[in-house]
Design a binder for these strands. Structure first.
Lengths: 293, 293
DNA sequence: CGCGAGTTTGACCCTCTTCAAAGTTTGTGG
DNA sequence: CCACAAACTTTGAAGAGGGTCAAACTCGCG
């Protein structure tokens, strides 16, 4: 029972409900800027691999930098060496040397570190369009693990391939650098959350951020998104116990803000949730790179 | 009283002391690799600004990449436009546009974010030799603040200057990229700490990391370092209250591991502290960049 | 149909926070 | 060089937020 989350069975939604009562009314300010919608440029004439322009990676890059025929061509070449990985199999192993990078094409993965006492901290989730393992190309030994959550497809990109592509299409290089920097900014945001935000806000914030990222590649909208994460994943990402994540999710659900159930996250009250989590709509929605290249 | 930290006055050092008793004996494994000592190359003949090669920035870079005359020359040029800032005056302001970057020459600073409820999360501390505000050159609006702790001296570097320098001396570019990536790795490590490590371990870990970084620029050794941080800084960095940081520091001090007092951090038992904090000696001591440029 | 992975809930307890107040050090002006 | 204020540190007491342990429940799947 009580799976509908309508709050009839258990009325005490605690702190979250209190917050709603005291803060939400009248604070729903207007959406100043919608998360930038994915703009795929009209197909240029020629030999572009037909599906590339609709690929998550291209969609994401295209939202930063206008892609011409050259860039689309380069992207399609990067997409050649597709590989599949099953859940539980590590893509990048802590301490391994001379890794390639990957571009996620389909599925979800996460990067994490393990402490001596066995605790696991999830640093970030990777979704379609994301780069993966870039730092392991810069350092001799990669400093974290990456593991698929769902079966994934990813394109393997060697160091040389990538540098060569960059040399040919500097605008693409800038866009990728921009994307990588955005990822770093997300890690900082996670640090802020884990360090300072209360459990419920933190959890809500993470899910809102994932939603914003998924929207960039067309995998979600304001109503919600398909989410293969378990509550254990969530727990290790936000630095809580799985038990407490469960309680927090119940509170949020019973407050009528969001439902995390059956592989789907549903935003029952998007604006309310954004207010509650103090989610900055702009931080994943920066204007393009400053650099004119 | 009880300022000597010898544990006579208050014997109950709690969990930390217990850990010492049960774990420390026999676990003091051998130092496999000393933190790489700063190697300043012998002065090449010519017009190099005399003091540059002993500057923190050069020392740090030199520990990644061997610097020739060209690179030293480039570094000395970057050092031209020195500026001073007083504590409390922001160098980089959240949301400001088109910032320059800075190379810290002297003093300490910290970068942080402020939440809606006024909580402050310190993302990292900047010490001599560190780059600062690089991301604000990539994004139109910088996403965090930077504030000096002590009076600082920093060299302002404009976007163009930097890109030009990189074009002239690619090896320097690689070294800088490497350094920036290392900073990002540190943020990840902080996230892991704040998310998973208990208060005492987390605090000890932060101070050990600072020490490792300071040693790279010759500002500390195995016995300790001069530390202008207040316990409030520490608290906002590790995500604890200042009161609890104080208690934790007392525990660590009374366990005979480390003393944080009067602007100085003293490692009373370096090996013991490293074990206690599960500090990975290698992670700031990577081999140089993989890239051959 | 039954197993395993994931979810949900309760009870208890511990870490860390908050509030409050007393010390201590540092900096500044006289 | 002293006096005073401001900033920082230290400690106590009380309580909240979140962890741990344990058990039941639910769901997808072979």
């Amino acid at each position: 029972m009580n799976r509908t989350g309508d709050g009839t069975f258990r009325v005490t939604a605690g702190r979250v409900a209190t917050w709603i009562a005291t803060n939400a009314l009248g604070k729903r300010d207007v959406w100043k800027g919608q998360i930038r919608q994915n703009r795929v440029p009209t197909p240029p004439a020629g030999k572009i691999y037909p599906l590339v322009q609709n690929s998550p990676f291209a969609r994401k890059i295209a939202s930063f930098v206008r892609l011409g025929a050259d860039e689309l061509q380069a992207v399609s070449e990067l997409y050649q060496r597709r590989r599949k990985f099953a859940p539980g199999l590590e893509l990048v192993h802590q301490g391994e040397i001379d890794q390639s990078a990957f571009i996620m094409a389909d599925g979800w993965a996460f990067s994490y570190k393990i402490l001596a006492d066995g605790e696991r901290q999830i640093v970030n989730f990777q979704i379609p369009g994301d780069f993966l393992g870039v730092r392991s190309m810069l350092f001799r030994n990669s400093d974290h693990n990456v593991e698929p959550i769902t079966p994934i497809e990813a394109s393997e990109v060697s160091k040389n391939e990538l540098f060569q592509t960059f040399a040919k299409t500097p605008r693409l290089a800038t866009a990728v650098l921009w994307a990588v920097s955005r990822d770093e900014a997300m890690v900082v945001e996670h640090l802020v959350g884990v360090g300072q935000r209360p459990a419920a806000e933190r959890t809500a914030h993470l899910l809102l951020e994932l939603n914003a990222r998924l929207r960039l590649v067309g995998l979600g909208d304001k109503t919600g998104f398909a989410c293969p994460l378990t509550q254990y994943h969530l727990a290790d990402a936000v630095g809580l116990s799985a038990v407490h994540v469960n309680r927090v999710l119940r509170e949020i659900r019973e407050a009528g803000l969001m439902t995390f159930q059956n592989g789907r996250v549903t935003f029952d009250d998007y604006e309310g949730l954004v207010d509650f989590a103090d989610f900055d709509r702009s931080y994943l929605d920066q204007d393009g790179p400053v650099s004119p290249y």
